[in-house]
Design a protein around this nucleic acid. Structure first.
Length: 253
DNA sequence: GTTATATAAGTGCCTATGGA
DNA sequence: TCCATAGGCACTTATATAAC
């Protein structure tokens, strides 16, 4: 089965999955960021925080963006603890973050049992310059392992820096990641392995996983984005294999 | 090769509110 | 009355990229 999608709360869904069923967890959780003060971060919707004035697109909002930092760290720790249980020994965690939440996310992954290995940069060439300031030109990608890295099982040499703009054409999600970046990141899993994304959004991780020959398990809270991810993954699957043996699971919560 | 357009996990600033 | 902060609204800058 190349992929299975679950609509529901991440913690609830992960708790229903068996031990040691995935090789890598690659995810882009809500950052609960996008502001200078706690109120700015917790009182506004994702669209209000992350969409510029004058933006023409009408991409849907996404939930889970209104926690303060302590709650966010606690929430993420719980999920990463479950994700750690689901991951085979030697497997990897790849976790997107921004500059504000990078410390909270590294705390959460370590509290969840992961061994923090480093932080990569995702460079976005099309970001806006700011007078008198440094450009906010990068997001960051923490990565970690479950125990020692098993390099013999997956002898790859991967970069620590990725440069690509957010998709402009056919963009489906406010914070959609470029598939070309995700196609590189999924290679942290051994060939033919299984990749989990518990904050799937529009499904870019899954599209990249299928394109690179991996199996994929996706979890998404909203029906709207689960449907979009289902469409994108089905299209990617048909484009790569012409197979039709997938299932849409849930909702569990 | 040139021009037009969209963009930023945006920022700046004014007003209201409430405590000291 | 002063001051700090939250809330709300107006609007930035110049670059990458699409369109021509």
């Amino acid at each position: 089965m190349p992929f299975s999608l679950h609509q529901g709360d991440a913690l609830t869904v992960l708790a229903s999955l068996p031990d040691d069923c995935v090789d890598a967890v690659i995810t882009d959780p809500p950052y609960n960021s996008g502001g200078r003060t706690a109120t700015e971060r917790t009182s506004r919707t994702a669209r209000q925080k992350y969409t510029s004035a004058g933006a023409e697109h009408q991409l849907a909002d996404f939930p889970g963006e209104n926690m303060d930092q302590r709650s966010f760290t606690f929430w993420l720790t719980q999920i990463l603890t479950e994700a750690h249980r689901l991951t085979r020994h030697g497997g990897a965690l790849v976790l997107f973050t921004d500059w504000r939440q990078a410390p909270a996310m590294s705390d959460a992954l370590q509290a969840g049992g992961w061994l923090w290995r480093g932080t990569m940069a995702w460079h976005k060439p099309a970001t806006r310059p700011q007078k008198g300031r440094f450009k906010q030109e990068c997001e960051y990608i923490h990565w970690a392992s479950k125990g020692p890295v098993d390099a013999a099982r997956n002898p790859v040499y991967l970069p620590g820096f990725y440069s690509a703009s957010q998709p402009r054409k056919d963009r489906r999600h406010i914070t959609q990641k470029p598939v070309e970046v995700m196609r590189e990141l999924v290679k942290i899993a051994p060939p033919g392995g299984t990749i989990l994304d518990f904050c799937m959004g529009s499904g870019s991780t899954g599209v990249a996983a299928l394109m690179e020959g991996y199996d994929f398990i996706g979890v998404e809270k909203t029906e709207h984005y689960t449907q979009i991810a289902s469409e994108r993954l089905t299209e990617a699957l048909h484009a790569s294999t012409d197979r039709d043996d997938y299932e849409l699971a849930g909702p569990e919560a």
